[in-house]
Amino acid sequence: MDKTILSRLQKLNQLSLSDKEEESVLAFFADREAECEALSAIDTEKVERMVHVLPILTVVREDKEIKTFTRDELQKGAPETEDGYWQVPRLVE
């Protein structure tokens, strides 16, 4: 892990860190990398990955009409709206 990779990660995750935070993240990553390395003690070559812990099947609901929210309700918590739309800065100059 170095600052170049960290910079890429910040961009990917839409985060901007201060210099102090960057130093802290690098130290944090070093600890985590040591944890990842320790997992090599377990041989998993013939082990299947397990995404879900229990055999839960996909639940299918009946296809029937249910009450949903109106646009006004959904936009109640929005930081900025205009004429029923979510307001964002101009995307195309």
């Binding site: 990842c36 997992l39 377990i42 998993t44 082990v47 299947e48 990955r49 397990m50 995404v51 812990v53």
Partner: peptide
């Protein structure tokens, strides 16, 4: 594969 996939396999080992 090296990290995330490994962790998923270790999850099965723990189960």
């Amino acid at each position: 594969m090296k990290v995330y996939d490994k962790a998923l396999r270790v999850r099965r080992v723990m189960v």
